[in-house]
Design a protein around this nucleic acid. Structure first.
Length: 597
RNA sequence: GGCCUCAUAGUUCAAGGGAUAGAACAAGAGUUUCCUAAACUCUAGAUACAGGUUCGAGUCCUGUUGGGGCUACCA
């Protein structure tokens, strides 16, 4: 909003003029005026007292007078305590509305060839089990971030690194071999990722049984864990896989295919996608080479058991394993390889990893290692670390069967949305197919908004029973507000009430209308802020506030039925723009809005 | 043990060092001859504790208490 800079500059000018001191206009504190006070913008004068050597009231008045004289947009000002509240003129607001009225995607900036490229990694599933609630948060955050960053005018590449190899995959494979009896997704009618996940669980059950048996024979828990045959077999399988043993390799390929098909369905339901997918089975060897190069260059060292380590004690961290004694790679090795491949593939300016906060340490280490290996971008990688999703009774544990499965949750949400819609009878006249689409839109709106409205850095609680509401501070509330606006506009057009090319300057705005318009005009700032601190929650909360404000406005005054043409036109244009901004905000969150609901 | 993080109404979440700490759900009371009541209006209810910095602290600093996480040859 340009007016803000104008005010700041003029305040700085006023200080120079009145008190003879230079101040940086950026240091001027200018806020939107609190709702309960009269005014549009507020200059905080407290910090200026040191310069003015006067009390807050007088200082505020001095500056207020100066501003009013210099800026025609300012209609009135009032000083309350240390706050200088500025009230802008009706014509200023009408002009602003006229200016943005026909701006497509107001507040968005589009990338050009020169724009920096940001790569965002998110999702990063393991192929041994289906996606759960934690992944949902990750996917929604990653996808929303990609849209927010793109709307700030950066080029964005969405990427996914699939953990398709390692001991955990071998556990599923081994269990399938031993107890699967050739089960396939087709033969069982199960989604592939769920089928494979079941065998992972099966492995764990059998493993525990074996440990218990060994402990009965008098072994300690630690000894028993080390001596299980099952784990030994799994390790053997991993060695065979790395040696590309044909039988193991074929099994691995087949089971992974099942999983990918399942994941694709879930991704599609979540409405997320990727521009480029990497597989650890393809990147880990690159990582190994890099580690060996580092070893040769003396950056790392080898222990007597042949394992390779990095010493990060100079950086205040520990020693870190990079390659096991048997030459197989670990998580870190793979991430090094993946990073190298990505930077070879794309001219990346900024790399963002959307990964849970439990891995803060891992990414600190990765950053240091990449830097040591000579990648100039290593230091600057961004770990977008988000909090865990917890259940009312605590953390989700897959082994205790308390995970909330992504597919189940989505299906449940759609069911609830359907029931509720039918009860309200809002979609009468829609075909079954059209109605289903709306149910889905509402269900996903509820789920996505619920997750995204929370500050990503914080842990959040999810209660599957009460879980998600469709009333109050929810996605459907915002969607409903949008549908309502569309309905109003349809009514207007049915009545033949045209929306004018340009609003008349003489139109006056009520306080509510000004408030709404102010929020609309603030949208670009919100997008920028959200992009700067990587927080979809800022967009979500803004969208809610805007929708709430609109609903109040809607109840307070007629729009289509307003008799006074000037007033009616303002309200129609304003409503339409609010609708646009709601739609854009929701788009940034990856949420669709229905025309009717 | 060390390091990181969080603590706000009964519950789930807000609050870029600024004014009387906002919402929603749950509880209670209202609003449909009028543009969608998935809405709107009203009532009641909160900054874990103790210090400090500041004109001003939920926000910054120190300590205490209580959650969560990391500190793995799991990924």
């Amino acid at each position: 909003m340009q007016i803000e800079n104008k005010i700041k500059n003029t305040v700085a000018e006023a200080i120079k003029e009145l008190y003879g001191q230079d101040v940086d206009s950026n240091s001027i504190q200018l806020n939107l005026t609190r709702k309960d006070q009269k005014g549009d913008f507020t200059v905080v004068v407290f910090p200026l007292l040191r310069i003015s050597k006067k009390n807050p009231e007088e200082t505020g008045k001095d500056i207020g007078n100066y501003l009013k004289e210099k800026l025609s947009e300012i209609a009135e000002f009032k000083v309350i305590k240390g706050f200088l509240n500025l009230l802008l003129s009706h014509s200023y607001w009408i002009n602003s509305l006229n200016e943005i009225k026909d701006t497509e995607e107001y507040g968005f900036t589009h990338a050009t060839d020169e724009s920096p490229l940001t790569m965002i990694e998110y999702s990063s599933p393991n192929t041994n089990k289906p996606l759960h609630l934690g992944h949902i948060r990750n996917n929604l955050l990653g996808y929303s971030l990609s849209r927010i960053v793109a709307s700030m005018g950066e080029k964005v590449v969405k990427t996914n690194i699939v953990n398709d190899r390692g001991i955990h995959i071998c556990k599923s494979m081994l269990a399938w071999q031993k107890w699967g009896n050739g089960a396939t997704p087709e033969s069982t009618g199960k989604k592939g990722d769920h089928l494979v996940g079941d065998f992972y669980v099966k492995f764990d059950q059998e493993y525990k049984k074996e440990i218990a048996a060994l402990m009965d024979k008098g072994l300690s828990k630690e000894e028993a864990e080390k001596q299980t045959k099952l784990m030994e077999e799994a390790r053997e399988m991993l060695r065979k896989w790395e040696a590309k043993d044909p039988e193991v390799y074929e099994l691995w390929k087949m089971m992974n295919e099942w999983v990918y098909k399942g994941f694709d369905e879930t991704y599609k339901a979540l409405g997320v996608d990727f521009d480029k997918i990497y597989y650890e089975s393809e990147t880990y060897s690159v990582g190994k080479e890099e580690v060996l190069r580092g070893l040769k260059e003396g950056l790392f060292y080898r222990k007597e058991d042949n394992s390779v380590w990095a010493d990060l004690s100079a950086e205040g961290l520990d020693e870190k394993l990079l390659l096991r004694g048997d030459g197989t790679s670990v998580y870190m090795t793979q991430d090094i390889g993946t990073a190298k491949m990505r930077f070879n593939d794309f001219p990346i300016d900024k790399m963002v990893y959307v990964v849970g906060n439990e891995q803060i340490y891992h990414f600190k280490v990765l950053s240091l290692l990449l830097d040591k290996l000579g990648y100039k971008w290593g230091k600057d990688l961004v770990h977008f670390s988000y909090g865990m999703v917890e259940l009312p009774e605590g953390k989700m544990k897959s082994r205790e069967g308390t995970v909330v499965d992504a597919d189940d949750l989505i299906a449940e949400m759609v069911n609830t949305a359907r029931e509720m819609s039918k009860e309200l009878g809002k979609l009468d006249g829609y075909t079954e197919e059209e109605a289903e689409k709306v149910y889905y839109t509402i269900a996903m709106g509820a789920l996505k908004y619920f997750i995204l409205k929370v500050d990503p850095r914080k842990n959040m609680t999810f209660d599957p029973k009460e879980s998600i509401d469709f009333n109050g501070n929810t996605g459907p509330f915002i969607q409903y507000s949008y549908a309502r606006i569309r309905s109003v506009l349809r009514k207007a057009s049915d009545k033949g009430t045209a929306i004018p090319e340009k609003l008349n300057d003489n139109a006056e705005l009520t306080e509510k209308e000004t408030q709404l318009l102010k929020m609309v005009l603030n949208f670009p700032n919100i997008v920028e802020e959200a992009g700067k601190v990587y927080s979809p929650a800022i967009i979500a909360n803004y969208a809610y506030d805007l929708a709430k404000e609109f609903n109040q406005f809607y109840h307070e005054m007629p729009i289509v039925f307003e008799e006074d043409a000037l007033k009616r036109e303002v309200r129609l244009v304003l409503s339409e723009k609010v609708g646009d901004i709601i739609k854009q905000s929701m788009w940034l969150l990856g949420i669709d809005v229905p025309e009717r609901m």
